[in-house]
Design a protein around this nucleic acid. Sequence first.
RNA 1: GCCUCUGUAGUUCAACGGAUAGAACGGCGGUUUCCUAAACCGUAAAUAUGGGUUCGAUUCCCAUCGGAGGUACCA
Length: 600
Amino acid sequence: MSSTIEHKIKNLVRQSILELYSQEVTDSSIQLQKTNKEFTAHYTVVVFPFLKISKKAPEATANEIGNYLVSHSTCIPSFSAIKGFLNLVVTDEEWINELNEIHLNEQFGRTEVSEESPLVMIEYSSPNTNKPLHLGHVRNNLLGHSISEILKANGNQVIKTNIVNDRGIHICKSMLAWQKWGNGATPQSTGKKGDHLIGDYYVLFDKQFKAEVAALQSEKGLTKEEAEAQSSLMNEAREMLRQWEAGDTEVRSLWTKMNGWVYDGFEKTYQLMGVSFDKIYYESSTYLEGKSKVMEGLEKGIFVQNEDGSVWADLTSNGLDQKLLLRADGTSVYMTQDIGTAKLRYDDYPIDKMVYVVGNEQNYHFQVLSILLDKLGFGWGKDLVHFSYGMVELPEGKMKSREGTVVDADDLMEEMISTARETSEELGKLDECTSEEASEIVRMIGLGALKYFILKVDPKKNMTFNPKESIDFNGNTGPFIQYTHARICSILRKAEAQGIVLPSEVPATIQLTNKETGLIQMLAEYKETVKDAGNTFSPAIIANYIYELVKEYNQFYHDFSILKEENSDLRAFRILLSKNVAKIIKSGMQLLGIEVPERM
RNA sequence: GCCUCUGUAGUUCAACGGAUAGAACGGCGGUUUCCUAAACCGUAAAUAUGGGUUCGAUUCCCAUCGGAGGUACCA
């Protein structure tokens, strides 16, 4: 139950129906919702579902239930019945109790985690080591981090994991290009972040490859496919992959060196973004495990082998196609690696649930993976969760890393922070700060704007990102929320400076306005919101909730005096209310991975 | 071709099957001797189309038209 008040009301409604109409109804059949803004009440019971029981008109039924509730409770002083909607008013006293309860619970809305709590492993990020992180990864990382925090808040033990795609033909392409044209360039010699340096060679490879293909086409009159097959560059890359798989010392040491540069670069990006992992897996050490699982499946007759030696899973009985698991040359594919990684993970941890944060382009892949793991005898296979999110598109369309038309994660974050600095300076917000404080604040604001912008969108949906226009600091944005938090902190500082001592509980005798009871009601909703976000894997639900709360609070702040209120009980109440709004803002933003400054 | 997702103001996003579809940005017009104006207030502007189920449909079902993704040796 989301709040004690809601719980009380539901019980009363059930009791009233039992007494009035001699019928038992379940809690879930009682539609209790927040009353629309246009009516001055708090909760609304939708009585349409009870008409069959009452055998009366909607309004008459609502009136009967309403009268019962008022006469059988102390917390509902009045009601109004409009059509099939029964609008209930809750007493000020009840709301003050609710606030006191929220106030006394520092962890309000969160469920405690213990040793016995379910263990959830969340895979996210999963970069390739041939290029720096871009906007698409940013969405992945932010969603992964946020959903980890949300699941923790819902009472789960969470292990964050990352599977680094550190082998394969794409890495060989970067390596080959570096070998051919790099002249021994290193991050130190060029002053570039390692991941960016490697990414440049990946792009260079593609450029040279395209040039070669075009030349073959025009000189020899080949089709594009023929030219690509004959490309010496591509053949060299394939040869390099074979050498890598064979363990060639030279190739391996180049690979180790270049991947090391990339990891150093990634680490900086992750740190700035504020994400981290408890356990990192590398594909280079899991793909062999996958191969052996596939061979095991082949022996058991779960999979089939073609004449050319390739191994397949026949999923036609599951309504799907046939799926390749090992190529004719014995090398592994994406699916093979995921099988191996899954096995290692379950060997390492007593996992109750596995969550993969991967884009929706992989929906089919995970559908297949789930079936395959199940067939291979992993009990948890069929319950794996693919947290599938939509693509981030630019106004011009999709990003293509090979063509270099991507929004780079590092550039983007730096740009956000410097914009935050400019805006803050223009507004004169940093005048009283030391330069260290100022840097901290603009970092929080810049990243807050970016993170909120991405997380407020329903993860399932594709989203558009316009680098020039998208991110604002006004309106429904991260900084708007951060600003409200900073304002409340300012009030609390002033209250302390004035020697105002807050009571641990507000006396239930003061008179509240609709604005105030509305705010308490919204605070109470936080608990249900956190649950909802956990059940539906949606940080957006948290983001939208906080925005609504903050919007409501700003109106209150504008229309009411807090510190200047003369009635000291009322003043204490408003300070306490503000303090708890700040607490929930901070808690909710933490679930999104967004920090909130105390001044800005 | 087949499968999946998706279509809401000019733009970016909201709305467990509930009341007059809600915000923000942008536009237009206001608020500061008063706790931070990154705020607050007002104003114009939208459910792709056609059916169906329901007391009630943006939401569920069917069709049509758009958009995105996947579809056996790329990850």
